[in-house]
Structures are given as structure tokens and as C-alpha cells.
Simulated assay, not measured.
Amino acid sequence: MESTPMPVERIEVGSSGNDGTGDPLRTAFAKVNRNFEWLASALTARIASLPIFAHVRHEHDDYVPRHVADGPPKEPPTRYGAMWIDAGRGRIYLATGTASVADWRELRLVEP
């Protein structure tokens, strides 16, 4: 699965609070959802291309289960490659197995 480069959609916040020049809430959160969907897809495609993950390919290659919560994972992943987003702490976890909570691995993103 190859992801197409997509620019991150910028949320317009306006000139000052509640001045009516920024994106409406619905538009802003639609952009947030599209940004996360693209990020999840791009990360999964990149990680799945690594030789170490060759054994985790399955019939649902194009499906990335995503969980968004206000805390780290507390239950085992349901599928290899699933993503858990800890919105409260701004952390992302990737499922590398399905046996236990320990199969969630926190991703550490570094700037080039």
C-alpha cells in the first residue's frame, strides 16, 4: 500500500478569538479527522514496508483500526497494525501483536 503525499490541512484560527474569520468548528474538526486518517494510513504503509513487519500482512491490509482515547492503551490490540492515539498526552501507539497490552508499542517520532 503506497500512500499519496497529502499536505496537512491547516486549520484557520482567525485574527483574534471569536472574530468570525477562522474555520467553523465543524470544518476545523473535519480537517483534524482527515489529517489523522492520512497520518494513520501513511504510518501504516511505511511501517508495513519494513522487512521486520513482513509477517504481519493479512487480508485486511488496507484497513487500519484506530482508537482515540484520553490515555494509553489498557486492552490488547485487536489487530496487527492498529493505532491507538492518546489524545490527552499526544502519543501514538502501534500494535505489533494481539496477545497483551504490551503489544502496543509507542511510536517515537523524530525530526530529520
Rank of each mutant, 00 (worst) to 15 (best):
Met1Lys: 13
Met1Gly: 14
Met1Cys: 11
Met1Gln: 13
Glu2His: 12
Glu2Ile: 14
Thr4Ile: 13
Thr4Lys: 10
Met6His: 14
Met6Leu: 12
Pro7Trp: 08
Val8Lys: 08
Glu9Ile: 15
Arg10Leu: 14
Arg10Gly: 07
Val13Glu: 08
Gly14Arg: 07
Gly14His: 05
Ser16Lys: 06
Ser16Ala: 05
Ser16Phe: 13
Ser16Gly: 02
Gly17Glu: 08
Asn18Lys: 10
Asp19Ala: 09
Gly20Asp: 03
Thr21Ser: 04
Gly22Gln: 03
Asp23Gln: 05
Pro24Ile: 09
Leu25Glu: 03
Leu25Gln: 02
Arg26Trp: 09
Ala28Phe: 08
Val32Ala: 14
Val32Ser: 08
Asn33Glu: 11
Asn33Lys: 11
Asn33Val: 15
Trp38Pro: 00
Trp38Leu: 02
Leu39Lys: 02
Ala40His: 05
Ala40Leu: 12
Ala40Cys: 15
Ser41Cys: 07
Ala45Phe: 06
Ala45Pro: 02
Ala45Gln: 07
Ala45His: 09
Arg46Trp: 13
Ser49Glu: 15
Ser49Trp: 07
Leu50Lys: 12
Leu50Ala: 13
Pro51Leu: 08
Ile52Asn: 00
Phe53Met: 09
Phe53Ala: 04
Ala54Met: 02
His55Pro: 05
His55Ala: 14
His55Leu: 10
Val56Asn: 01
Arg57Phe: 13
Arg57Gln: 13
Arg57Lys: 15
His58Glu: 10
His58Thr: 03
Glu59Ala: 01
His60Ala: 08
His60Trp: 09
Asp61Asn: 05
Asp62Leu: 14
Asp62Lys: 12
Tyr63Phe: 07
Val64Tyr: 00
Val64Lys: 01
Pro65Lys: 01
Arg66Val: 14
Arg66Ser: 04
Arg66Ala: 06
Gly71Thr: 14
Pro72Asp: 02
Pro73Glu: 01
Pro76Arg: 15
Pro77Asn: 12
Thr78Lys: 14
Thr78Gly: 12
Thr78Ala: 07
Arg79Leu: 09
Tyr80Lys: 01
Ala82Tyr: 00
Ala82Asp: 01
Ala82Cys: 04
Ala82Lys: 00
Met83Arg: 01
Ile85Arg: 06
Ile85Pro: 04
Ile85Lys: 06
Asp86Ser: 03
Asp86Cys: 03
Ala87Ser: 14
Ala87His: 13
Ala87Pro: 03
Ala87Ile: 07
Ala87Leu: 12
Arg89Ser: 07
Arg89Asn: 13
Ile92Leu: 15
Tyr93Val: 02
Leu94Gly: 00
Leu94Asn: 00
Ala95Gly: 06
Thr96Val: 15
Thr96Trp: 00
Ala99Asp: 13
Ala99Ile: 03
Ala99Tyr: 05
Ser100Leu: 03
Ser100Phe: 04
Ser100Val: 04
Val101Asn: 04
Val101Thr: 12
Asp103Lys: 11
Arg105Gln: 14
Arg105Tyr: 11
Glu106Cys: 12
Arg108Gln: 12
Arg108His: 11
Glu111Arg: 14
Pro112Gln: 11
Pro112Glu: 12
Pro112Thr: 14
